[in-house]
Amino acid sequence: MRSPDHAPILEARCLTKSFGRRPGLVGVSLTVDRSSVVAVTGGNGAGKSTLLRCLAGIARCRGDVLLGGRPVDDAAARRSFSYLPQYVELPATSSVAEVLYLFARLRRVPPESHPLPPGFLPAPDAVIATLSGGQRRRVAIAAALVGTPALLLLDEPDASLDEEGRLGLWDTLGALRDAGTTVLIATPASSDLGGLADRLVVLDDGKVVHDALVDRCLPSLCGTVR
């Protein structure tokens, strides 16, 4: 067995989850090395969000998830990643600064320790309830990136972002990848990740139907994700 320092940043073995009779994930296995961007793609209901929720340990699945060689419930493993849900409503009466402060306290880092460029976030004293959907998404992204964990699990992070926000996000994630961070992005098959993805994992009906580096990916299976 590899030591945690040399283990893949993420290893999922035979993840299986069902919602009643409907399969959510069927025996999904995935190994992700450090310093890479993996796009998990597929149509609606393919299992992208379920996979990320299982990897984050917030959905109970059969199978194993190891983060840096440690089980996902391990305290050190939980410090090594962050998760951004596809849909999240931040506390409406909190300010931007209060939201970032909360996540910074949980990770024991300064609130300003997110890598996003100046101007990406609304004013710190802006109240969440007064922000647009895109601005709220920016705050949620910043909260997930506070402390810059080694692994980012991002479920459609660019949803409701404008073009400027999207480009700023891709630039930030690219720089993080170059600095050693690993990013898993769940995204629809028609998404443009700005050339960010190194590898594409295609899901269909809860199963991995294709897993390849971007330049070797079959257009018929990978769609237009790049």
Partner: peptide, 13 residues
Amino acid sequence: ERGFLGMIAAQPV
């Protein structure tokens, strides 16, 4: 329901 509990639960808590 708002997805916030899941996001918080994925933190080191």
